[in-house]
Amino acid sequence: MSDVLILGEVKEGSLDLKTLELLGAGKKLAGELGGEFSLLLMGDSVSGMADEALPYGPAKVYKLEHHLLQGFKTDLWLACLEQACREINPKVLLMSHSFLGMELGPRLACRLNTRLTTDCIDLSIDPEDGLLLRTKPVSGGNAISVFKCPGEPQLATVRGKVFAAAESGDANGEIVDIKAKIDESMIKVESLEIVREEIVALDKADVVVSGGAGLGEEDGFELLEELREALSKSFANVMIGCSRVAVDKGWISSDHQVGLTGTMISPDIYVAVGISGAIQHLVGMVHAKKIIAINTDPGCNMFKVADYGVVEDYEEIIPALIEKLEELS
């Protein structure tokens, strides 16, 4: 058995960054439990990834391969995960707070009669009873709560970018095969078609670089686009936003608009460039975790809600910032 099991995810043929972070978290928790941590990989073909995972230090990499696991069919993946949990019998199971984690987590918790805490930003083991302490933001991020629940395995989905990714080292673990016991009759929800979309989903962005009237001209957004590209090297989902005035001026299309009449967002970082902060705009972004304001007017509203402010012409700051970001990355 493993004390801490991590459900791995694969992205574009290699281990997802979030999984590496989970391995980091798993190692920490295994240490607190005085046990070991392992990784579970599921899919139609995951052998390559299993090898890739070993250097990150798991005691075991469980490999559950089946041709029916091609594509993500929740019913089958859930059955496999349940089966794996019953066979491995971990004390703690961690999943990413991702689409996959949220599809499987609640239903798995029900099947195993345990309790899941979603979107955790911190995890530790209570030394008294060995249960998982799960820290999670609640009330739209206005409060932080720590939960402790009975049941086994102790189950949590973990927010991205809160744990440092595990570091690669010597590969001492072993790869263990689990034979999937699934068949097509288990599919209750039939997939008919997958439609891919290219959309400006501002509400899904991790970082939003937003411009307003203070840019002075349409070309200002070209500079913001350069900043966006520079930030994309360090952050996952960087997008361009704007204020209503910028849309009104025709500088940018309205699907980029943040605020009352645009999209309401709460990204990790919101960079407001040349936006004074009208109430219509503020209500749409004030829940961002960190707000950075760049504006020439020190009295403007944006500075009142910002964490960091730069009172300077954006045309001076941003090119310099892009340079510094390149140096850092």
Binding site: R115, N142, A143, F303, V305, Y308
Partner: peptide, 22 residues
């Protein structure tokens, strides 16, 4: 099963102005 509840650390936004040359 809440064992602790607290305000998020960054609730109050005191803007830190970054000084110096551009």
């Amino acid at each position: 099963g809440i064992t602790a509840l607290s305000s998020p650390p960054d609730m109050g936004r005191d803007c830190e102005l970054l000084e110096g040359s551009p």
